[in-house]
């Protein structure tokens, strides 16, 4: 017995090394479980607060760019107000085509609310990228909400603390966005498996469809994360391979993730209702 203890004592460093590596491995493997826990992510109060402070300084360097963006967006929205007024005067114009993607959800009743937020931490060059926002539960943000800019889809909220939110970037290998081919509404899924922050791939487009370079991919609106018709990207490569049952499609992501400053969190007002109805069907 004492010999056993002697051996354990002799190799104690190695044993502790193995133990610590196992702990780390467990953390990595169970990543998805821990993602929910706020304390281990950048939305915890201390880390979020530090990122908020640094981004408070940093944001001044982007003011010109941000102002220009807002100006463009304002112009777009003004145009839509004009068009909407025309619609109400002249009923023959089909309403849906005149609305910007951002407000498609509003065509009948207001289905989405948008919470503006500032990006205080962002990464682009890893295989699992995350974004931290400076708003949290106190501002009405909940897990699973969508994030977008006027250019298109940015990501989805992962975990929320009172004042911060950590989110999956679209550039995350586990992200999948329910989407459609704009020209004929064919359903597909956009995934980021390219390791290139400007490109994503589109899965599950059946071979009988015609797909050309330049076609637009938008969100489908089938889940209550994003409104329908939010831009995802434009097709740059479309390839048919005999061995596959689906097209191999690559898109140029419409959002420039390296210049992400202000975003909208899309809050579906009917999410609870829709989810409970759909889960009732399953039973």
């Amino acid at each position: 017995m004492s010999q056993l203890f002697a051996i354990i004592f002799k190799y104690r460093v190695f044993l502790v090394f193995i133990l610590l590596e196992l702990v780390a491995a467990a953390l990595i493997v169970n990543n998805n479980t821990y993602q929910r826990s706020v304390i281990l992510s950048s939305s915890n109060t201390v880390v979020g607060g530090i990122y908020n402070t640094t981004s408070n300084v940093e944001q001044y360097f982007h003011l010109t760019e941000v102002n220009e963006d807002l100006l463009n967006e304002n112009a777009l929205l003004r145009k839509q107000i004009e068009l909407n007024q025309m619609v109400s005067i002249n009923d023959s114009v089909e309403q849906e085509n005149t609305l910007s993607p951002l407000f498609y959800g509003m065509s009948d009743t207001i289905a989405y609310d948008f919470i503006p937020a500032r990006v205080i931490n962002n990464s682009v060059y890893r295989s699992a990228n995350y974004i931290t926002l400076n708003k949290g539960r106190k501002d009405g943000i909940l897990e699973g909400m969508g994030i977008m800019t006027k250019d298109g889809v940015v990501g989805q909220v992962k975990s929320v603390s009172n004042h911060f939110a950590t989110c999956y970037s679209l550039l995350h290998r586990d992200m999948a966005v329910s989407s459609e081919l704009k020209k004929n509404g064919a359903l597909c899924t956009v995934k980021w498996d390219t390791e290139d922050p400007t490109k994503a791939s589109v899965n599950y487009l059946p071979l009988h469809l015609d797909i050309d370079v330049g076609d637009t991919i938008t969100t489908s609106g089938f889940n209550t994360v994003y409104p329908e018709g939010v831009m995802l990207g434009v097709v740059t490569e479309a390839e048919k391979t005999p061995s596959e049952r689906f097209w191999l499609v690559t898109i140029d992501v419409s959002v420039d993730f390296s210049k992400l400053h202000h975003v909208y969190v899309s809050k579906s007002l009917f999410r609870a209702e829709k989810d409970s109805l759909e889960s009732m069907d399953e039973q």
Binding site: F14, L20, V23, A24, A25, L27, S41
Partner: peptide, 30 residues
Amino acid sequence: LLVAFCMGFVVDIFYDSIGIHTASCVFLAF
């Protein structure tokens, strides 16, 4: 080993990459 574990863990929280830096740092320490 323990210091490396702590360092990796804290860096992981900042990088949102829980476990990855921890494992590498412990390996380095060994």
